[in-house]
Design a protein around this nucleic acid. Structure first.
Lengths: 124, 124
DNA sequence: CAGAATCCCGGAAGATACTG
DNA sequence: CAGTATCTTCCGGGATTCTG
């Protein structure tokens, strides 16, 4: 069993964060967690995402082994995306983060308000 | 107790991810987890970070209430940073993520190699 | 329908120089 | 020592257009 502390190897955590920390990945994973989705379904359900970014996000997830892309070569074509086992396992740490965010978001908000108030009233 | 699913509210998770998902935050938190640090200590220990980015990262963490900044107005000046209680609580989800990353990084690496191999050999 | 290709902009982030 | 200021470069990401 490898012994590792607070954040394990920086590089590893950094790479994972670089993936799930981007703008759309978490939203996509959340939708796919509820079942397979077509491209247009994801686009509609997520809302605010461009085709380009949805494509890039899905490609990244596919490359990392989080998502499987299934093409049905009909006309018009149909493409389904679904989480792999690895993709599903990613839900746990994301959910943890979500729970943490839910629990502490108010404290963060207030800290920000206080900070901004101080910054506004004590310039040089 | 609020009931919330996979990723809680997107906005909340998104804001937290936007903070800890940036390039340097996790590295800084990891160092501060081991105890208070001076600016130059952080800069040296982290390595590769510019003064500018370290400053901005610390300001962001301070604003969010994760870090306390203590100035000792000597000459030369001395500034210490330390995690707040909120900051320490952030270590848990980060560590979870670290553990997850540690456990699955090999699978991700191989998925990437396979994907890249396919992409290289099956162009139109 | 599901993208690929192209153009474009704003912000992230690095390098450098200066300062209390 | 611990920043701030400025400049520049780079890239994420949006809008639009085209295609099998």
């Amino acid at each position: 069993m490898p012994r590792h502390g607070v954040a394990t190897d920086c590089t590893r955590v950094g790479r994972v964060l670089a993936r799930i920390g981007d703008k759309w990945t978490v939203l996509v994973v959340r939708q796919l967690a509820e079942g397979p989705r077509r491209f247009s379904e994801l686009k509609r359900e997520i809302g605010g995402v461009s085709q380009r970014m949805l494509t890039l996000t899905l490609r990244g997830l596919e490359r990392d082994g989080f998502v499987i892309r299934t093409v049905t070569p009909t006309i018009p074509p149909r493409v389904d995306y679904e989480l792999t086992f690895l993709g599903h396992s990613l839900r746990e740490p994301i959910e943890e983060l979500g729970n943490w965010a839910f629990a502490h978001i108010d404290a963060i908000d207030e800290a920000q308000r206080e900070f901004d108030a101080r910054a506004g009233s004590e310039p040089s």
